[in-house]
Design a protein around this nucleic acid. Sequence first.
DNA 1: AAGTGGTCTAGACCACGAG
DNA 2: TCGTGGTCTAGACCACTTG
Lengths: 244, 244
Amino acid sequence: MSNLERENSPRFQPLYQQVKEHLIRQIVDGRWAPGAPLPSEAQLGTELGVSQGTVRKALDEMTAEKVVVRRQGRGTFVAEHSQEQALFHFFRLADEAGVTPIPASEVLSVKDINPNARVVELLKLSSTELVTQISRVRSLSGQPSVYEDVLLSKALFPGIEAQQPLPNTLYTLYQMHYGFSVLKARERVRAVSANARYAEILGIDEGAPLLEVERLAFTIDGNPIELRYSYCNTEKFAYQVELT
Amino acid sequence: MSNLERENSPRFQPLYQQVKEHLIRQIVDGRWAPGAPLPSEAQLGTELGVSQGTVRKALDEMTAEKVVVRRQGRGTFVAEHSQEQALFHFFRLADEAGVTPIPASEVLSVKDINPNARVVELLKLSSTELVTQISRVRSLSGQPSVYEDVLLSKALFPGIEAQQPLPNTLYTLYQMHYGFSVLKARERVRAVSANARYAEILGIDEGAPLLEVERLAFTIDGNPIELRYSYCNTEKFAYQVELT
DNA sequence: AAGTGGTCTAGACCACGAG
DNA sequence: TCGTGGTCTAGACCACTTG
């Protein structure tokens, strides 16, 4: 008999999905830290009163969603942001050959601001909350190519302005210091004209076309956690995406 | 005993992957047309000499890759491009609320051209082949918003210029008349300035920023089949993508 | 009622990694 | 050698669709 709720009349949810949600909740609640191994399939099956195959199906879905990583012969581990993973996954700029360069980052400023209506809406803030804005410029192949404003709820990321130096990939910082794992994001891309400030920072003409990327990033449990605006010079690099 | 090749010394490939490739080959070869039902899991298992569970695992992966569609109680069907599917999947423009409008299309010209080096490279053409270029303008909410050049190998799409009127979603035409199912695409997005022609067609100022989308579309068996350049006015709509 | 895919189980063996 | 995940099987029952 299962230890999980087992509805019989209207069967609300398959067992393996209950197992999956149960495991995700425990990861969110910190039972296992990022990088830590979960118990084996057999142990989890015993613990939850379901068969190993059911645990496997839950873990397979969690693998597809990048919540965990499985390695044959070693075990199942809570997903961890390595620099490379975070970059390769969310940094979409690539050269003609499809190769993503390693960006260098220089922080221009970190300050608290009053968010505008769209920021409040997207980050689901209360309208009186302060927002921390990190402005930086990222260089590709030594050339300043991206101006970026990162917007975070000050309440969720207290003291982030004191984190110096800020790492190139902020998502590893979010995970290590604030316990937030970014697994999903929604990006909205448009073409805009460079204003005087962006033009100067990126070394291009005012009015030159720039790619604006608005990224809303979500944690494992589906809450928006970061809003980011990137302004990219796409003369040498393009925003590349696979549609499947 | 399996009817499939069953290597034992070095086991080159799991059985279910062999089943998957076998089924995909048969779909490509036309054993079942788009929309047609495959045999049931049990029948396929018997036919191939593997268990139903192994067939299921193969079909599950094929479902994830959108090669087939499964419907409980009805059966497993070869994936079909409906207008809505093709649009929703590959047409990425969406308004502020994330809603994709239905584009209207007006064909400007269909003509044969000599491809440039990049077209030859991406479509893997021989350098002497002719390419058919379909130019059209697509309107969103009644406003001309996208200028588009579609490039196809004339050898693979004979007589496409005679297909009048061309449907809004070309992929349904490719599937129905030429037997090519587009399942994957790679897009490269950059910001450019509108030239005089695009500016006039889209009703914007020359030099205004436009989103250039270069799309290389692939068939079920991984061959590039279509190259497409779209120039989008992103004042009211943005190119939207989910990163997972 | 019959047939389909969806879920769940139990058990076997294989391939990999670490001690 | 042992423990892990990966593959494969066989069989049971559930849920949905159609006749």
